[in-house]
Design a protein around this nucleic acid. Structure first.
Lengths: 240, 240
DNA sequence: GCCTGTCAAGAGCATTGCTCTCATTTGTTG
DNA sequence: CAACAAATGAGAGCAATGCTCTTGACAGGC
C-alpha cells in the first residue's frame, strides 16, 4: 500500500470526508442498530444531500464494510491492550483479561458487536479480503496466550492427550503451521472450543438470550465461566 | 385458552389465512433473511394486496413474533425428538443428540436460527410473554438430562465442587427451584456454560465466523466439542 | 487564466411499512 | 329467503428508504 499522506489536498479532503462518514455511521450504528443504518440519515447529519455521499461510499454495503473493519479494529485493540496490561507470564490472568475485554466491549457496543458476531445482515456478506485481518486479532491473541503458556510449560494437558480424529488433525495441523503454534493438536481444538464458548457466553448476554431476570449476578456468572474455560484451555491459575 | 376448533367458519378461514401468511413468511425468511422480510412480498405471494394482510397481522413485528414462535417450536420439537430417541439412561448420548439436533437444525435453517440466536432485529423486541415458553424448550431439555443423570448418580462432580460466590448462588438457587432441579449449584452453573458454549459453537458455524476454509472437518470438530462439553457438564460416556 | 475533473444538488424510480376510505363479499339472523 | 351487519379486499396515499442520472458550480493543475 502507498498509504502515508497523499500529497494532493483533494485526496486529503476526500479521506477526511470518508472518515467523517464512518464516524457518523458508527454513531448511527451504535444508536439504532445495523439494519437501521441509513445512508440518507448519515447524509443529513453530514449536512449534505444523500446523493453526495455516494461520491465517497459506493453503497450502503460499502459503508457497512467500513464499519465492520472499524469495529473489529477497536475490539482487537482493546483486547490486545487488556492482555498486554498483565504480566507476560501470567497466562491465566491474560486469558481472563482477554475474555473480560471482549465482554466489556460487547456490552458497551451491543449493536457493533451484533454486526460482527450476530446474524449476518441480510444480503450483505463482508468481503473476506478486507475483514479477515482485523477480524482475527482476538483469536490470534487467544492462541498467542495458549502458545506462550505451552512454551513456558505452564499448560496442563489434562485428560486431553487423547488424539483427535485424522480429518480434524489435518485442519489443526494447518492451523498450527499458519499461526506458528507449538501447542499440541488436542489443545488447539480445545482452544477453538474456548474461543467459540467465550463468544457464546457474551452473545447470550448481549442478545438477551438469558431471560430478562434469570441471572442477576451476570458479572459473577461470566467470571465463573471464564474460570472453567481457562481450565478447559489447560491454563492453571497462578500459584498461590 | 378456548383453542380447539372454533365453530364459526369465519374464524376457521381466518386462522387458515394466518397460517398461510406464516408459511409464506417462513419461506421468505429462509430464502432472503430476517430483515428482508417484507409484508408486501408475502401479500403478493398470497395473491392479495398489501393492506389486506394487515387484517390478519397487525404489523411486520407481529409477523416476526409469529415466526419466532414458529421457529422455536420447530427447533424445540426436533431437539426433544432427538433426545427421546436415545435410551433414557444414556445421558451422555442424550446430550450429544441434543447438541447435534441443534446444530443440524441451525445449519438447515440458518436464517431462522439467526432470527432466534443472532443479533436482534433492530427496533424489534420479541414479546417475552409469548416467546419464553417455546424459547426455553432446549434449555429445559438440557437441564432435564443433567438432572436425570444427577438423580441416577451418573453425574461426576469433577473438581467443580468448589462453592460459587454468594451472589451467583442466589440466582442458581432460584433456577433450581423454578425448574425443580436436584443438581448442585456448581453443576447448574456448568450447565449454563455448556448451554451458551453449545450455541456459541453453532453460531460460529452458521454465521461463518470460522474463516471460509479454516476448518474442513467441521462435523468432527463439533463432535469433539460436544465430547468436551459433556465432560464439563459432568456427563460420563457410557461404560465400554 | 483557462480547462478539466471533482463535487453537490435535485429530480426521479422502485421499494418498504402502514393508514385511510370505499366497495364487496360473506355469514348470520329475522 | 331476504336483509343486515360484520368481515374482508382493493386502492390511494404518506413518509421513508437505496440508488441512479443529469445539471450546474467550483476548484485544482497546466
Amino acid at each position: 500500500m502507498p498509504a502515508g499522506k497523499p500529497a494532493t489536498p483533494r485526496e486529503r479532503a476526500r479521506i477526511r470526508t470518508i472518515e467523517d462518514i464512518v464516524r457518523l455511521g458508527r454513531e448511527h450504528l451504535a444508536l439504532h442498530g445495523a439494519a437501521a443504518l441509513s445512508l440518507r440519515a448519515v447524509a443529513r447529519d453530514l449536512g449534505v444531500v444523500s446523493s453526495a455521499v455516494y461520491r465517497y461510499v459506493a453503497s450502503r454495503e460499502e459503508l457497512l464494510t467500513l464499519l465492520v473493519i472499524d469495529a473489529y479494529d477497536e475490539l482487537g485493540a482493546e483486547v490486545e491492550a487488556a492482555v498486554a496490561a498483565r504480566r507476560p507470564a501470567d497466562f491465566d490472568g491474560r486469558f481472563r483479561a482477554l475474555g473480560s475485554a471482549v465482554r466489556a466491549w460487547a456490552l458497551r457496543e451491543p449493536a457493533r458487536y451484533g454486526l460482527l458476531y450476530g446474524s449476518p445482515v441480510p444480503g450483505y456478506r463482508a468481503p473476506a479480503e478486507r475483514t479477515t485481518v482485523p477480524g482475527t486479532r482476538v483469536i490470534n491473541a487467544l492462541m498467542g496466550i495458549l502458545d506462550g503458556a505451552c512454551r513456558a510449560g505452564r499448560l496442563t494437558a489434562g485428560d486431553s492427550t487423547a488424539a483427535v480424529v485424522p480429518a480434524l488433525a489435518a485442519d489443526l495441523g494447518r492451523i498450527r503451521r499458519d499461526m506458528g503454534l507449538t501447542v499440541p493438536d488436542p489443545l488447539v481444538a480445545r482452544g477453538a472450543l474456548v474461543w467459540t464458548s467465550l463468544f457464546g457466553a457474551v452473545s447470550f448476554e448481549v442478545f438477551g438470550q438469558y431471560g430478562a431476570d434469570t441471572f442477576a449476578a451476570r458479572d459473577e456468572l461470566f467470571a465463573h465461566h471464564l474460570g472453567v474455560l481457562a481450565g478447559i484451555a489447560g491454563l492453571q491459575p497462578p500459584a498461590p
